[in-house]
Design a protein around this nucleic acid. Structure first.
Ligand SMILES: [Mn+2]
Ligand SMILES: [Mn+2]
Ligand SMILES: [Mn+2]
Ligand SMILES: [Mn+2]
Lengths: 231, 231
DNA sequence: CTTAAGCATTAGATTCGTCTAATCCCACTC
DNA sequence: GAGTGGGATTAGACGAATCTAATGCTTAAG
């Protein structure tokens, strides 16, 4: 019923929407999907006509409940596929995003069901992203804080990292920073870099803000707790 | 580079081409893909322009070597996927065709490689269809004879059945007729039905010509050998 | 209150895959 | 060697998704 393209736009809006409460601007969508602004505008008109987004001209769009359901379905496919490719087909977690990004639009509900079953209904994907349930209930995508918001001395556990950039993922993997890794914040330098020590004694890693912003962390027991406050 | 649609047309031509040496008629392609004749004509023009088919107006088309390579790649994807879905995801062999028919256009070469490896480079899919090798060497799709060409008393082994019709597959499965099944031809009725007895004593099955034409068989040792002669 | 910069939208065009309606070939029948 | 029936092609149009170029809002600065 919906084209793969429309699904892509809805997923993009879903992802942008979790960055703030503002309506999502046309240009952000165009950027993310690598199309021109007029293209995004005209797609927003179609989506609005179908009741999948609410649109205020010159302001931006927001997913309607129906639009969010479609987005959640696509996101569920994406994250289940990433998990499946990693667990069952031996993909590296850095490689799975593009494959999942194509297949997410073409698998059947039957395929989704069987994969979920084989993986025993996983709650998170290899990057720590939460997998929407079969019922497509809204998911809290903003749980936790990001590493840029941490302060020196914080003891943290990595919860999730962005799955977008394979190079970044490969680097983090190499450095030993994956969901579940415990680390201590050594320095938050004012020039835009955060240095963390791996809790298992594997050394120190310096992470630029742009990357730190995509790493979600939780305080471990015994922390100051500052990591749970917003910046 | 090539659209999924173009791949579909090339695969369709590949499949029709193995039914005879004649060029493939536009109307056959249109029928198979469920489009109108002008649509098929115009796609044939595009494919000819790209050097993927050789076209003689009002006669039909034939795959060029390049076109055949593309078709073989798609067919390899299709049959590997069918095998994978059956072996690893627990699909029934009657259900896999449609899923494979969509995914075949969207998996990466990496996915293909990993699936082939996991399955240990299978030579045939669940329906007995030969899987083209990684090198995409031409495959003999017409090996063996079909059940309509059999004569009474022939002892045969089922080699392959068409994967197109899930109902037919479910029926044959139910009846115990799968690749590897041994059977004896009891009667070839002039009204267009073939009756066969299952060699393992599981009774007799009557198969209409239309279906028998899609079941490929080989003679077992001790047969009259007539099944290996063309009709 | 005015203006200009910076987004966003409108206008108009293109490509792909598809359709219906009209026309055209070709091969077979007489 | 016509004539005709049936399949194939041409003609013309359309929706989806995209682009470039032109125009239009909004807003923040003055
Ligand atoms: Mn996608
Ligand atoms: Mn992910
Ligand atoms: Mn297909
Ligand atoms: Mn098959």
């Amino acid at each position: 019923m919906l084209s793969a393209k429309m699904e892509d736009y809805l997923k993009a809006i879903y992802e942008l929407q979790r960055e703030s409460d503002e309506p999502v601007a046309t240009s952000r969508i165009a950027d993310l999907l690598d199309v021109t602004a007029p293209t995004a505008t005209s797609m927003m008109e179609s989506l609005a006509e179908r009741g999948l987004v609410e649109r205020e001209k010159y302001k931006g769009v927001r997913l309607t409940p129906e639009g969010e359901t479609v987005a959640l379905e696509v996101v569920r496919h994406h994250r289940l596929l990433e998990t499946y490719l990693t667990e069952e087909l031996g993909y590296d977690w850095a490689e799975v995003h593009d494959e999942a990004d194509r297949l997410e639009h073409h698998i059947s509900e039957e395929f989704e069901r069987r994969v979920a079953e084989m993986l025993d209904d996983p709650a998170v994907d290899p990057h720590g992203d939460p997998i929407p349930t079969d019922a497509l209930d809204p998911v809290d995508e903003t749980a936790g804080t990001t590493l840029v918001e941490a302060t020196e001395g914080d003891r943290l556990v990595v919860q999730r990292v962005s799955d977008r950039d394979p190079e970044e993922l490969a680097y983090l993997d190499e450095a030993g920073i994956v969901p579940g890794t415990e680390l201590v914040v050594e320095e938050v330098a004012p020039i835009g870099v955060v240095s963390v020590a791996l809790a298992d004694g594997e050394g120190t890693v310096s992470i630029p803000d742009a990357v730190a912003r995509t790493i979600f962390v939780d305080a471990t027991d015994g922390s100051t707790g500052s990591a749970t406050e917003a910046a």
